[in-house]
């Protein structure tokens, strides 16, 4: 089972995860990121972008093709 957690104590609400989520599954509630599991495809990009190391996705195995960062 995948477990998606946002550590609100570490999140500084910069909004980078929100801006670059390909599925628009993240938003800001005040100054904390919030996650919508309905829209999320667990691509994992937000986990890599988070400057606060606040996002953690524990997945047993890769089920979904990882998202691709946009190239210029």
């Amino acid at each position: 089972m995948e477990a998606y957690t946002i550590n609100a104590g570490w999140c500084k609400g910069c909004g980078i995860c929100v801006a670059f989520c390909p599925k628009k599954a993240l938003g800001l509630d005040g100054d904390k990121a919030v996650h919508d599991p309905e829209l999320c495809v667990l691509c994992g990009m937000c986990e890599l972008y988070c400057p606060d190391l606040a996002i953690r996705i524990d997945k047993p195995a890769k089920k979904v093709k990882a998202g691709k960062e946009a190239t210029a």
């Binding site: 500084k12 909004g15 980078i16 100054d31 890599l48 972008y49 988070c50 400057p51 606060d52 190391l53």
Partner: peptide, 25 residues
């Protein structure tokens, strides 16, 4: 990743959105 850091010092001192955190990550 969480096992490789000294968790008691988090949240870190960098500003919101600081690129240093992304590199550390």
């Amino acid at each position: 990743v969480q096992d490789l850091i000294r968790q008691r010092f988090f949240p870190h001192l960098w500003c919101p959105g600081c690129g240093h955190g992304i590199v550390l990550n």
